[in-house]
Amino acid sequence: MTETPLLTIIVNGETVSFSLEDFPGSVGALITVLAFPEEHVVAEVNGELVKRSDIASRSLTPGDKVELVRFVGGG
């Protein structure tokens, strides 16, 4: 039995591993996989802002660094 190679993405500083079949192909897919509420989440990939309208289409490749941020209470 061959071991499936794991592909990783760095999400908010944490390494998240996926099998080849489960690898999320886009930021939108990643948000779905992580079960984040998509509304008002905004993303950067490798330091570059992803427009909300592009979240579904912005593709991901293994090794990408993704920041997912949202509003919290603050003064």
Binding site: N12, G13, L68, V69, V72, G73
Partner: peptide, 12 residues
Amino acid sequence: TVALRRVDIANP
């Protein structure tokens, strides 16, 4: 006012 922070992967 509100602040912007990373989403907590374990607890959104």
